[in-house]
Computed example of a mutant assay.
Amino acid sequence: MKLVRLFFFFVIGVLFIQCENPTPYGDLYVQVRDEQGNAVVDGYVTLYGSLLDFENQTNSLSGPTKTDENGLAFFLNLSAGDYYVAAEYTDTETGNEKNNFLVDTEINVISTEIGYRNSITVIIWDSFISNLTSSSGKQWEIDRIVDVQSGNIVPIEECLQDDLLVFYTNGVFEYKSEEINCNEETDDNFTGHFSPVSNGSFIVITDELGKTRYGLYIISVTSTQMITHYGDSFIYYNYVP
């Protein structure tokens, strides 16, 4: 009987301590919108614990969680810390994909003993990523250049004919010039990053020092052809296996 009594007081003591020191937590409300500002219904949101996992879409901490009729996804009882938020949506009729995979979307979740409501808005774009990139690097070479005003074919400079643009799913970019450099004093080859801005169709390419090297308006990308608008020209690229 004495042992039973002691056990009872021990359990009461543990419960008392737990009540006195509740575990801090935070909730995260994610609002997903498209490039027009519309709430994205039936999209999916996933949380990652590091930038590397976010870029490679591996080792998710929570999700994918489906967005509701207001474009909201909820993640409850999170520990304090930094999280990376990936949002995506696929139009079932057209197969068109939108996501934010090229934009490092990070949030620091705050937690308290009575909870804390954290919130973030994530914009997703029609960024052609599934066709533009691959995890091992998708290579594109110039097929032809067309003058925007006249529609005439523009000769491709010899120094560009052996060049390749290489896009990786994690946002890494490579410029490969096989033999001839356009500037004899500068090596055209470099490795950097690319990311969408504006409505997601404009791609900014930077080098390893963060300097902007190119900007491309992506008109369309299929699995085998990419069309861009650069300066006064439309540039057609072919996929190189």
Rank of each mutant, 00 (worst) to 15 (best):
L15F: 11
E158M: 03
G13F: 01
G192I: 02
L160Y: 10
V172W: 12
E141R: 14
F202V: 11
D162I: 02
G215E: 09
M1C: 12
N100C: 03
Y116R: 04
Y25F: 15
S233N: 10
V14D: 01
D91S: 09
S177L: 01
G231H: 06
S233W: 05
N99I: 10
Q57S: 10
F54A: 04
E179Q: 12
N238L: 13
T90Y: 06
E35A: 00
T92H: 05
E184D: 13
N152M: 11
T46S: 05
L132D: 07
G192Q: 10
R33M: 00
G192S: 07
Y239W: 12
F128Y: 12
S119H: 06
V166E: 15
S150A: 06
I153R: 09
E113F: 10
N118H: 02
D207F: 02
V41P: 01
Y29G: 03
I142A: 05
K211E: 15
T65A: 15
D162L: 04
K2V: 14
I180Y: 06
N170V: 04
S62A: 15
I114A: 06
T228E: 02
N181K: 05
E97Y: 14
V122G: 01
L52Q: 13
T212L: 08
N99E: 12
A87Q: 02
Y48A: 07
Y237H: 10
T23S: 13
N96T: 15
D147Q: 05
G63W: 03
D104C: 00
T133I: 07
E106M: 13
T191F: 11
L132Q: 06
F173R: 02
V4D: 14
E20H: 11
V4E: 14
G95E: 10
T58Y: 06
D232G: 04
Y168A: 07
L61N: 11
F167D: 12
L132K: 09
H229C: 02
I142C: 01
Y236D: 05
T46Q: 02
N183A: 10
I124C: 00
N59M: 06
I107W: 01
P24A: 03
L51M: 10
S130Y: 13
S201T: 13
L165E: 12
S127H: 03
T169L: 09
F75K: 03
V14K: 03
D126C: 04
R144Y: 11
S119C: 02
T46F: 04
F128S: 08
I227A: 06
V103Y: 00
G151T: 04
Q18C: 14
S150T: 15
Y239V: 08
P196E: 06
E185T: 13
L3E: 15
Q139W: 10
H193M: 13
V30R: 01
V85Y: 01
S150K: 09
T67M: 03
I129R: 12
V146A: 08
